[in-house]
């Protein structure tokens, strides 16, 4: 079936299987491989994207449900070639190690800062608690998001 949706600001269409997930649509249908599959069951958060501004595990959303909707992926944050503030903070704070959780983690952080520009450390920890990271112990990830929060509102908030 053909699904048409807005991805990172552009209208895109892809032919997908009726049982395909949004994750499959993005990775296989559109070649946007920045979004990762860590479990396929909505348990690890590596596939987090924003669907109409809300964070979702894209492995749990049917592609067909996304017809006409708006999706923001990790590729949409730095389209001008420059890192956005969250990406820069992750790189500067040492919040990245193996990097496989990073895109999903950044998207969860983005969703948090869009709805709550001044989160506490506890609110940050809560917001990324659905994103597993096995390398960092989460400390520097929380540090990075705290840095961004102190810089002022992020785009989309």
């Amino acid at each position: 079936m053909l699904v048409t949706l807005t991805v990172n600001g552009s209208l895109r269409s892809a032919e997908v299987d009726s049982a395909a997930s949004l994750l499959t649509l993005l990775r296989t249908g559109l070649g946007l491989t920045g979004t990762k599959q860590g479990c396929g069951n909505g348990e690890c958060g590596a596939c987090t994207v924003l669907l109409d501004g809300e964070p979702v595990n894209s492995c749990l959303v049917f592609a067909a449900q996304c017809e006409g909707r708006e999706v923001l992926t990790i590729e949409g944050l730095s389209e001008s070639g420059e890192l956005d503030s969250i990406q820069r903070a992750f790189a500067d704070a040492g919040a990245v190690q193996c990097g496989f959780c990073t895109p999903g983690m950044i998207m969860s952080g983005k969703a948090l800062l869009m709805r709550n520009p001044r989160p506490t450390r506890e609110e940050i920890a809560e917001a990324i608690s659905g994103n597993l990271c096995r390398c960092t112990g989460y400390v520097k990830i929380i540090d990075a998001l705290e840095v961004v929060a102190k810089q002022g509102p992020v785009e989309g908030s």
Partner: peptide, 19 residues
């Protein structure tokens, strides 16, 4: 020193096997 692979990883450009 900032990680040399950080930019690739925060932008989703880093190519893992399944990519």
């Amino acid at each position: 020193v900032r990680r040399v692979d950080a930019d690739d990883k925060v932008t989703g450009r880093a190519r893992y096997l399944d990519d």
